[in-house]
């Protein structure tokens, strides 16, 4: 195209200023577009960096919350052991002190019986502490049984109507996954019971592709996704932060929403299926 000039040299009218304006305009337009692309992209990159920074901040909050939660849990166990199991065993020891041999037989039997009762109580207490750490139903029979058991206990208390239905749980998840899901469900149910004033809670489970879904319905006062995100970024809502950190471990997702009819709230939990087989 460098050599496109015509050979015919018949002079004619002068050059149209429109051509120069057009060329100049096109050049300005091209430079403008390129400039805009650079400007816009820089803006987006800056925004992404900001988003990344916020995400890191959120991670830090979650980590702190998780550490705090762990400490609280340890304190609770320590308090249970110190305040309940400790005095019980100390009392049992008093009954079985050295003077026991010097006592009368009836008194000895009474002391041994009392000590036995106290030791039984201590055993029960320790079992309860242990169960709160790892529910035996979950360990032995799986998530379905543990969840159904939990919901039956809630329903049995008479405070609200709770039910759980597992549609397709023929193959169990990995034990650690089951525990995490159970804790999330427990936390959700606790929150609903504490804050929502709900009349019913219903949990359903199903599979789709390589994903497992859990959905909790309740008719109380709930939260939607934006509120969940907001609480997650704030210093409040330790329980929700625990849910978020557990979901992160599971590589799952959670979605809080209100039904279009505004009659009940839905919480959907999506987790990848990693079976124990």
């Amino acid at each position: 195209m460098f050599f496109l000039q015509a050979t015919d040299t018949t002079p004619s009218t002068g050059i149209s200023p429109l051509m120069f304006l057009g060329t100049l305009g096109m050049l300005m337009l091209a430079i403008g577009i390129v400039g805009f692309v650079i400007y816009h992209q820089r803006k987006v990159i800056r925004y992404n960096h900001e988003l990344k920074r916020l995400e890191e901040e959120k991670q830090q909050i979650l980590l702190n919350a998780s550490i705090r939660f762990q400490e609280e849990e340890r304190n609770r166990i320590a308090a249970d052991l110190h305040d309940d199991a400790g005095p019980l065993l100390a009392t049992a020891r008093l009954y079985l002190n050295e003077n026991l041999v010097n006592q009368e037989k009836s008194q000895q039997l009474q002391s041994i019986y009392s000590a036995k009762q106290i030791i039984d109580e201590a055993i029960l207490l320790i079992r309860n502490i242990s169960h709160s750490l790892m529910p035996p139903t979950l360990k032995n029979f799986g998530l379905e049984s543990a969840t159904t058991d939990l919901f039956q206990k809630i329903s049995g208390s008479g405070s609200l109507n709770a039910s759980a239905r597992f549609h397709d749980y023929r193959v169990r998840l990995k034990v650690e996954q089951e525990l995490l899901v159970f804790r999330i469900i427990q936390e959700l149910v606790n929150n609903i019971m504490k804050h929502s004033n709900a009349g019913f809670i219903h949990l359903t489970q199903n599979n789709s592709g390589n994903k497992m879904y859990f959905r909790v319905h309740h008719d109380g006062t709930g939260i939607v996704q934006t509120e969940f995100e907001k609480l997650n970024h704030s210093a409040l809502g330790l329980g929700l932060k625990n849910i978020a950190s557990r979901i992160r471990v599971l590589n799952g997702r959670i979605f809080f929403e209100i039904d279009p009819s505004h009659t009940y709230f839905k919480i959907t939990l999506e987790i990848p299926r990693e079976t124990s087989l």
């Binding site: 051509m19 057009g22 060329t23 096109m26 050049l27 337009l29 091209a30 577009i33 390129v34």
Partner: peptide, 10 residues
């Protein structure tokens, strides 16, 4: 882009 835009009217 600049090349083709500049030469388009031409």
């Amino acid at each position: 882009f600049i090349f083709f835009a500049g030469n388009f009217f031409l």
